[in-house]
Structure formats: structure tokens, C-alpha cells
């Protein structure tokens, strides 16, 4: 407890208190989080800015993944690897060759953080197009912006991760995400999680590749630095203009994403949402942060209201009251002098 107090003290005094505050928040469990909530709120009120979707500077070497839909053969081994890596019931690898799952369009859910869907190839029906979908790890993620407790973090390496200890289960992130990626463990009454791809942060900390990238037999998932990946994608399109359409999905979409796609088919037809280049949290954050920036606008508003109230109370009726009081005082004085 003592240590905690010291920290809070530091937080309050440090010029870069907001950042330190959030670093400090990271190391809290839920209990401590609630305990320090009040102090935290005070420190926020004292001048820390609310966390932005990409407040921290992203690393130059941040991760990029390119999904080449012309190369993917739809083996769904990535689904198996992902489940295994995340401790989800995965079953037998050979059972994944069952292609009846392609009958219906699927989205990532709490049982599978990545799914592969099949689309028709008009040019050659024997070679359908397969599209893997998972969290896009946006450069300016809407989920991070929407989260009221900072349970979702945009990391320096580009990944967007979820923190069990901070999440209060409001599911705002699910509403905010334009790719409808985060899902909720509705079936669990105790400790339900927000489930989404975390770019295998645990595996990567051990120096391994993300599970889906490692298992892909065709290397349809190209993993590397985002800058290198973009270069490779542009090169592919340049070399085979007949194979690919000239568009890297995720290069600019909603301010760019970590996971990007190239395809021979229009992304419209692959059920990829058509999004502009404006970031999702851009407008909402501008409004929100505009209203609450350094608490100046609300304080000004209340100050203004207070002034108006003060003027109305003490300005007009106030003067009348004063004269009455004066009169009272004067009569009292008179009484005193007359009695005296």
C-alpha cells in the first residue's frame, strides 16, 4: 500500500503525469485498479489528457502482415494453429480439410480468432479465392479509443492487445470496431473475455512467429516490418499486373492497418468493408477531446453558468436585498442610539 501511495504522489507531481499514470495502470490488477480509481480520476481532472487511439508513437519497425489472397489455398491450417496457440479447443488438424464450412460466411468469434472464407473465382471456378480474416490491428484503432478503462492497448510494435485485468466488460470495443472483430464469451458467466487476435504476443515474446504465419504452407501470410511488407506488396502488384488489382487493402484504409491484403478480385466482392482513409477515432476523439481538453471547456462552461447565476442572484435582486438590510441596520442603529 505504501508503495502505491508513493506512486500516486509521483503521478500527481510529475510533469508527464498522464503517461506515467498509464504505465502505472498497466501493472495493476482489477482490485488495485478500483482502489486507485478515485485517485486516478482526480489526477485526470488535474490535467491529464484522455488516452488517444495512437497517442504513443508507433515504432518505425512495427509489424506488418500481408495476406495474398491469390496464394491462399484455403487449407485452414491457420485456424488450427491459432486455436492451439491460444489454448482453444482445436481438434484434429486433418478435420480442417472439411470444406462444408465454406457454405456460409463466417466471422472470427470467441472459438476461433481467425477464419478463412471461400469466394467464387469467375475467371476459373476450379481455383476459388480464399480470404483469411482476423483483427486488422489498425494503426489508429477505434476499439482502443472507445475503451473507457484502457483495457485495449495499441502497442509500439503495431499490435492491439486486450488486458483482462482492466476490462469491465462494457463491450464498447465490439461496437466501435469497423471490422466487427472483437467478440465476447457470452456463454461464460464468470470472467468472460473479449476475444480477438493478439498477433500472438506471447509467442513473439519467445522469438517465435505468429502461429498462423508459421504454419501457412504457402506463405500466404507475409510477416515482417510494415515498411518492408508494403514494399513487397507493391512489387508483387507491379510484377504481375494481370494477377492483382492495383490496391493494397489496409495501406490507407481508416488510417492504415497492420494486416493488409492484396487480391485479384475487387475487395467489395470479398466482403471487405469499404472504408475511407479517415481514421475511425479521428472525428469522435476530436469532438470528445475538444470538449474535455484539460477540462478547460467544462470548467469555463460552469464558470460561465456560475457567473450568470451570481449576476442574476446578486446583481438584480441582490441589490434590493442589500438596501433592505441597510434599512434594517439603520433602524437597529437608530433604536440603539435612541435606547442608549
Amino acid at each position: 500500500m505504501h508503495k502505491q501511495k508513493v506512486c500516486t504522489y509521483k503521478v500527481l507531481l510529475h510533469p508527464r503525469r498522464s503517461l506515467i499514470y498509464f504505465d502505472y495502470m498497466k501493472n495493476l490488477d482489477r482490485r488495485n485498479f478500483l482502489k486507485t480509481a478515485a485517485v486516478g480520476a482526480a489526477s485526470l481532472a488535474l490535467g491529464s489528457r484522455p488516452v488517444k487511439a495512437a497517442d504513443k508513437t508507433l515504432s518505425e519497425d512495427r509489424i506488418g502482415i500481408l495476406i495474398d489472397t491469390t496464394v491462399c489455398a484455403g487449407c485452414r491450417h491457420c485456424e488450427w494453429a491459432c486455436r492451439t496457440a491460444h489454448g482453444l479447443p482445436a481438434g484434429d488438424l486433418e478435420s480442417y480439410s472439411d470444406n462444408s464450412v465454406f457454405k456460409y460466411y463466417r466471422r472470427p468469434d470467441n472459438s476461433s480468432l481467425t477464419v478463412v472464407n471461400e469466394f467464387e473465382n469467375e475467371k476459373n471456378p476450379m481455383l476459388p479465392v480464399y480470404v483469411k480474416s482476423q483483427c486488422m490491428h489498425c494503426e489508429k484503432p477505434a476499439c482502443v479509443s472507445a475503451c473507457i478503462v484502457g483495457a485495449l492497448t495499441k502497442n509500439e510494435d503495431g499490435s492491439v492487445t486486450w488486458n483482462d485485468d482492466k476490462c469491465i466488460g462494457c463491450r464498447y470495443c465490439m461496437v466501435a470496431c469497423q471490422f466487427q472483430v472483437p467478440t465476447y464469451e457470452w456463454h461464460k458467466s464468470i470472467d468472460p473475455h473479449i476475444m480477438k487476435c493478439d498477433l500472438c504476443s506471447e509467442r513473439r515474446s519467445k522469438g517465435l512467429l505468429p502461429a498462423c504465419v508459421e504454419i501457412c504452407p504457402n506463405e500466404a501470410l507475409l510477416f515482417g516490418k510494415r515498411s518492408d511488407i508494403l514494399k513487397a506488396a507493391k512489387n508483387k502488384i507491379k510484377r504481375k499486373p494481370g494477377t492483382y488489382i492495383d490496391h493494397i487493402y489496409g495501406e490507407h484504409e481508416i488510417g492504415g492497418t497492420t494486416v493488409m491484403y492484396i487480391s485479384g478480385k475487387k475487395f467489395d466482392d470479398l466482403k471487405m468493408p469499404q472504408l475511407g482513409t479517415a481514421t475511425a477515432p479521428g472525428i469522435s476523439e476530436a469532438i470528445q477531446h475538444g470538449i474535455f481538453a484539460y477540462f478547460v471547456p467544462p470548467v469555463t462552461l460552469f464558470a460561465l453558468l456560475g457567473t450568470v447565476m451570481w449576476i442574476t442572484k446578486f446583481g438584480k435582486s441582490g441589490t434590493a436585498g442589500c438596501t433592505k438590510e441597510n434599512e434594517k441596520l439603520q433602524t437597529e442603529n437608530k433604536n440603539e442610539t435612541s435606547s442608549g
Binding site: 496464394v71 484455403g74 487449407c75 480439410s97 472439411d98 476450379m126 481455383l127 501457412c216 504452407p217 504457402n218
Partner: peptide, 20 residues
Amino acid sequence: KAAYHRQCTNCHKQWSNENG
């Protein structure tokens, strides 16, 4: 690994669904 697999699956894409 990818270079070899692509040689086959570029044409035999259906193998991935036939426990190829």
C-alpha cells in the same frame, strides 16, 4: 516451404479441402 507448396497448390487448390 512456400515455394514447394505453391508449385502444387497453384493448380491443385482443391487438395487443401481433400486432406491432400
